[in-house]
Design a protein around this nucleic acid. Structure first.
Lengths: 210, 210
DNA sequence: CGGCATCCTCTTTGATACTG
DNA sequence: CAGTATCAAAGAGGATGCCG
């Protein structure tokens, strides 16, 4: 681990989490909770396997990741964030908020994983009608469906399906996200391939913060 | 500039500011305002000059830095943050806050510049007695004196000296910072080489947030 | 001096193949 | 599943040179 050799809190932080891939590994563990090595590889398209192993080792040494051997019959290794790793959440949020600007276009070849939607959905929106009945929106985009629950003042997103979703949105991620973020309207989203089932009015429950 | 190729706001942000040295350059421009190339080199001990030139070019292309040629007779180039660059402030603050944990010890060979104290001082402290008279504390550590003004609810730090400071603290940066952050008391700080002139009671005006 | 560009070496990364 | 091993390419670091 190459260090900047500067007595400065920012430089010290970057000594620990400034290496390529490190913060994305924190993202995966933060989004999905404890992960197997293979889960991490799936959530980090493009990473070389040796690099993932190297990073996990360094992050363990630096106290932001903890490795836990699950006992038989499961017999697998689970990687967790430590408390110190969890404390990186404000950093990820600040960076993600700043980077949201670049989400307008999806570049050719950009990989996408549905669970990445959790951070933007839970942090870019609040419940516009906390006293209204809870609503469920299912997003069908990327590798797995995401269930968005809006109610009681909170917005939650996680992999899963609803028995009777109020609304189902299907299409390319940049279209689904663009619609949610009100970068364009329903008509434009449909022109870009969006399909909907159910009551599109429940989208009004998402109050856009950003 | 190597990209992660992921349709994710965090990855997109890191595509732009994740390269080595980039965020430290933003720090310098944020702390000091528009800088000459040479000022940047001074504030970034350890950077190779070609790398600084490369980064400044990339950052300009990415819209976070703007270059301005001062007219003769000054005839120098000034590097500014763009609006987009200024918007990185929350990222720097989050990272700096997280990295403050590592400031307890100063590692052998760690370089230090006094103006780096501005972020921690202005963001780790508030004015404990907003209605009291303003006080001035001069810090003599590192390459130049820093003047800390506490009053009216605000804490400001900048290079400079006071005509009649209420308190002067001299010593190694880790001692001055450790004292301010209440990691140890005045007695312990003196044992570590701190020298004071004036009224140490004004330190009570700094309310420690972190 | 200020603002780089070049050259060289060393380290890190990425792609792929292979293993207990 | 959870990594190692290998090797080529890219990037970082250091020294020095150049030009207004």
């Amino acid at each position: 681990m190459r260090t900047y050799g500067q007595y400065c809190a920012l430089a010290k932080a970057l000594d620990v989490v400034g290496d390529r891939w490190t913060l994305l590994i924190v993202r995966e563990l933060g989004l999905r909770g404890p992960c197997r090595y293979t889960d991490l590889r799936h959530g980090l398209p493009g990473i070389a396997t040796n690099l993932l192993a190297d990073r996990l080792r360094e992050m363990e040494e630096n106290g932001i990741v903890r490795r836990e051997e699950a006992p038989p019959p499961v017999a697998t290794t689970l990687f967790h964030l430590t408390e110190r790793g969890v404390e990186l959440a404000p950093v990820l949020l600040a960076l993600g908020h700043w980077g949201a600007e670049y989400m307008g276009e999806r570049r050719e070849g950009d990989e996408f994983r549905s669970h990445w939607l959790r951070y933007p959905i839970e942090h870019l929106f609040t419940d516009a009608a906390p006293d209204g009945p809870a609503v469920e929106i299912e997003l069908r985009t990327g590798d797995q469906p995401i269930l968005v629950e809006v109610g009681g003042g909170a917005v939650r997103a996680r992999p899963g399906v609803a028995e009777k979703p109020d609304l189902v949105l299907s299409g390319e991620p940049e279209v689904v996200l663009g619609l949610l973020r009100e970068r364009f309207d329903l008509r434009a989203a449909r022109r870009r391939g969006l399909r909907t089932e159910g009551d599109v009015a429940v989208l009004d429950r998402l109050h856009n913060l950003g």
